[in-house]
Design a protein around this nucleic acid. Structure first.
Lengths: 246, 246
DNA sequence: AACGACAGTTGCAAATAATGCAATCCCACA
DNA sequence: TGTGGGATTGCATTATTTGCAACTGTCGTT
């Protein structure tokens, strides 16, 4: 592990919360400001940060240049985009695309709802492995041994009264999901949000992503959300076909 | 300057070109693979990279989570988005939003043309200071002394026969731009692309961004591109109003 | 004009972290 | 079982990082 790299990355993360002065950054790390300056200079040279006329540091354009490459590398995202936009337009609800990578489920695209009340999320953030529909869909597609290994490592933090609270319960739920080909989050992640999700498959036949529709209670009841399933499944089938699924 | 941080960032940049093995990354830096491993472990812990089942490294979701914050911090981007989408739909051409930060002009948003032939660009990339319309608009709005200082530091690389080749010529062009309130790139950046650009102002009255329309020759002549000016100016005026410009 | 405060920056030696070697681990294949 | 290939770990050496002290520049006040 590299302490110096960890420090630099920590500075980047801090700037995600807003501009900072050199003194603030040095305090954050508990180092002398000279040390912070040198770290920032390296980040600035590579365009990961820039410094404005008032010597305030900001996240730089090089960061999002690299991030846009990262998103392009996730080819499924480009294939899914028009379909997700159409689903979002047809339902008026928030539509997410998520993928399983590096042991976590992450949101890789998002189309926002027209409604004022919506689920908080952001591209790049992790989805809870035990309490989100997209995670259930992706985990359900893992080989059983790997599924069990992943589930055994989950920390079952209860977020709502509906949250799944143990590995046995989740494994049973994943069996159900694997059988029916879709998943729900019935107020398990947020008390006022219900979601349905379904897998997207590629030429290998494996689930490479999951699409979900998220709906707040004030907009539609859980039963209403389930009525969106046919549209969701139609969309994931179309994306899968474009992705070369058999 | 920090050698270790620079190395880590170089690894990130390399992954922008695609997945890599540990050996490849070590070769890239000219270090022992143990060293490369430790750098990657730090990057992985902070979610900037992930490693797949075949031990191949990829850019991670933490990178684009942070980038999405960076883009949100550029508030003008959100304000401009609906207007730019409308301009893109109305003209069918590629529309860019650029800003001047850290001594460079960078693309911070983009709406692609419907046409097959278009100008290559990517969010986060730098725009040439001497050969793009957005840069001319942003530089033209700097105080004269700063404008001169910036221009004197430019390396006038000729990209096309039309490219401006010296500071005096560019300063004269910027005077013109400051007077007329818009700029052109008449095949100065690419031989087959013409652009027009205009500034977006905020409550301070300063140009905080520039909007451009880029059109390939095969689609429309330079004269036709100039005919897009009224729509462009209408758009930048609307964005500026939303941004609180006086 | 001079002074003080504050923030950023530079040079250098000491301190610390990074580095690479050698050994070990793990997996796949014959 | 043995072999090959790639990843990983422990340790001593080496190189880099670190923080101190001094300096620079800007701004505000007297």
């Amino acid at each position: 592990m590299s302490q110096t790299v960890t420090r630099a990355l920590r500075l980047l993360t801090e700037l995600g919360d807003g501009e900072r002065s050199l003194d603030q950054l040095a305090d954050l790390l508990g180092v002398h400001k000279t040390t912070a300056l040198r770290l920032m200079q390296s980040l600035e040279d590579e365009r990961f940060v820039y410094r404005d006329a008032d010597y305030r540091y900001h996240l730089g354009a090089g960061l999002f240049a690299l991030a846009s490459l990262a998103m392009e590398q996730r080819g499924i995202r480009g294939i899914a985009a028009p379909h997700l936009a159409a689903l979002n337009a047809a339902t008026g609800q928030t539509v997410h695309l998520a993928a399983y990578e590096g042991g976590e489920v992450v949101y890789i695209d998002k189309y926002d709802s027209r409604h004022k009340v919506r689920m908080y999320s952001r591209i790049g953030l992790k989805a809870g492995l035990h309490n989100t529909a997209v995670a259930k869909v992706l985990l359900a597609d893992l080989p059983p041994a790997e599924r069990r290994r992943v589930v055994s490592g989950i920390e079952f933090t209860p977020r709502t009264p509906n949250t799944i609270t143990g590995p046995q319960q989740l494994l049973a739920e994943l069996e159900t999901v694997a059988g029916q080909g879709w998943a729900v989050d019935h107020a398990e992640h947020e008390t006022f949000i219900n979601c349905v999700a379904a897998p997207v498959r590629d030429a290998s036949g494996r689930a490479v992503a999951a699409v979900s529709i998220s709906v707040p209670d004030v907009v539609a009841s859980y039963e209403r959300v389930l009525e969106l399933l046919p549209q969701l499944l139609e969309t994931t089938r179309a994306i899968s076909a474009d992705a070369g699924a058999p």
